[in-house]
Amino acid sequence: MARVEHDLTDAQWAALTAAWQGCAYCGATDRPLQRDCIQPISRGGRYTLPNVVPACGSCNASKCNDEVTGWLRRKRLDERAFLLRHHEIRTALAERFADPEAS
C-alpha cells in the first residue's frame, strides 16, 4: 500500500462533492460523504480525481471492494445514470484541474 500513489487534493475533493451534490451512488444528501474509490485499492485503484466519488457511509460500506457496475446492479441502483454522470463530472474536472505544465 505504501507504494500506491494517492494524489487527490482537498480542492479536487471539494469540487467532486460540489459536482455530485450527494452520494454518487444513491443520491443521499442528508448524511456525511466519504471518499470512495470506484476501482478499489485492493484491485489496483488509487485515491485520484478520476477514481474517487463521494459516497454515503452506507453505500461505501456496502460496496466495499466490489466492482462498481456489478455492485450497482445487485443493489438495483441506476448503473447507466451513474456511469454517464461520472463521465460528465470526470471530464469537466479533468479540464479544470489539468496540469498546464503537462501540455
Rank of each mutant, 00 (worst) to 15 (best):
3 R>N: 13
3 R>Q: 14
5 E>Y: 05
7 D>M: 00
8 L>D: 10
8 L>N: 06
9 T>E: 02
10 D>G: 07
11 A>E: 15
13 W>Q: 03
13 W>F: 06
14 A>D: 01
17 T>E: 14
18 A>G: 14
18 A>L: 12
18 A>E: 13
20 W>G: 10
21 Q>D: 15
23 C>R: 05
24 A>L: 04
24 A>D: 12
25 Y>G: 03
27 G>D: 15
28 A>Q: 13
28 A>M: 08
29 T>F: 02
30 D>A: 13
31 R>S: 15
37 C>V: 05
37 C>Y: 06
39 Q>H: 06
44 G>E: 06
45 G>E: 13
45 G>R: 10
47 Y>A: 09
50 P>S: 12
52 V>C: 03
54 P>Y: 07
62 S>L: 06
63 K>I: 04
64 C>P: 00
66 D>F: 04
67 E>H: 00
67 E>G: 00
68 V>K: 02
68 V>R: 03
70 G>W: 08
71 W>C: 03
73 R>G: 14
74 R>S: 14
77 L>M: 10
77 L>D: 10
78 D>N: 14
80 R>T: 15
83 L>N: 12
87 H>A: 15
88 E>M: 06
92 A>H: 08
93 L>S: 07
93 L>W: 10
94 A>N: 10
95 E>C: 05
96 R>F: 01
100 P>I: 08
101 E>Q: 05
101 E>F: 05
102 A>H: 08
103 S>C: 05
